[in-house]
């Protein structure tokens, strides 16, 4: 049986599960919607992955990343738990070895990562605004009645993109409605929106960063050829979208797990059987002091297996 490593990236919008081999080649990849239920999404992802690789690959390490990385880590018994910025950088420099800039736009966050000689030297992530991320594009596609997959292609058909105010998601929508009512056609409005979002991204997240080639564009939004074209136009450089652009975080997590397992010699992976175990999360407010921390409890069947969220560590460290 082949040795493989599992990477799981649970984000706000999508849950991605990949299996890579010793060389980092992708053996299986999966992109499913989280739909606000991370536990369910992870289970589904693991189940489908197990069906694909069962009997062919032996899982020798697991890494998790994304906003639900800690939750997922206790569920599956992860060897590494890494933030999504590092995970994305690791994957990008693996797939495109001489990458110097990574543009990553996901469901609710967007980031820019600057690499020099394969090492992250700077990064930025949207802080107070999520205009222009995947969720907003989804919403606009739904409002205009076009499937999100067609969004980018339509943008490419535009001859004269309309200027849309892209600073704020809500105002961008008002502006688009206004332009529609003035009589602009759909392609021009969509192309205008793509340009506005790219402008907003470069002016906020990308502000002050030295964007050098090769520029890699990844995350779910990289599927949108309209946004990609808008980036090429704004940056006047080729934009590389890697083969597995929408599961790069998971690939990074798997690569990190591979390296970690090499160092420590074994894995904590609980096996694909975890899909049959009942996991639940609940929370309560600790009234021990003025901080009033919201403590999260993770149950495996009826047993608490992890707690977090408290600042003082009183709950985190209680023997399970």
């Amino acid at each position: 049986m082949k040795r493989g490593y599992l990477g799981i990236d649970v984000g706000s919008v999508s849950t991605n599960v990949v299996v890579i081999d010793e060389e980092g080649e992708v053996l299986s990849h999966l992109y499913i919607r989280t739909q606000g239920q991370p536990i369910k999404a992870v289970k589904r992802g693991l189940k489908e992955t197990a069906e694909k690789v069962d009997g062919k690959v032996e899982i020798c390490g697991v890494g998790t990343t994304g906003s639900a990385r800690h939750l997922t880590a206790v569920m599956v018994g992860a060897d590494t738990v890494k933030n999504e910025i590092t995970a994305h950088a690791v994957a990008a420099s693996h797939e495109v070895p001489d990458a110097q800039t990574i543009l990553e736009i996901g469901g609710q966050d967007s980031k820019i990562i600057i690499l020099r000689n394969g090492v992250v030297t700077d990064f930025a992530m949207n802080t107070v605004c999520a205009a222009g991320t995947g969720s907003f594009l989804d919403q606009q596609a739904a409002r205009l009645g076009i499937p999100i997959e067609k969004f980018g292609e339509l943008a490419l058909q535009s001859k004269t993109p309309v200027r849309i105010a892209g600073r704020c998601g809500v105002f961008a929508e008002s502006d688009m409605i206004h332009k529609q009512q003035l009589g602009h056609n759909l392609e021009d409005i969509i192309a205008g929106l793509c340009e506005a979002l790219v402008r907003n991204y470069l002016n906020n997240v990308g502000k002050g960063k030295e964007i050098l080639p090769k520029v890699v564009f990844q995350g779910g939004v990289a599927a949108n050829v309209g946004i990609r074209a808008a980036f090429e136009k704004a940056l006047q450089t080729e934009i590389i979208v890697p083969r597995y652009f929408n599961v790069m975080g998971a690939i990074g997590a798997a690569l990190l797990a591979r390296d970690a397992v090499k160092k420590k010699g074994g894995t904590n992976f609980k096996g694909f059987d975890v899909v049959d175990i009942d996991y639940r999360a609940s929370s309560f407010e600790c009234k021990g002091c003025a901080n009033r921390c919201e403590v999260i409890e993770i149950y495996q069947e009826d047993e608490v297996i992890a707690r977090w969220g408290d600042r003082c560590g009183k709950w985190e460290s209680i023997a399970m």
Binding site: S67, K82, N83, I85, T86, D122, F123, M125
Partner: peptide
């Protein structure tokens, strides 16, 4: 969100 940024900064 802050934790994620800090972790990435520390990695860097």
């Amino acid at each position: 969100g802050l934790q994620t940024r800090l972790e990435a900064f520390v990695d860097l």
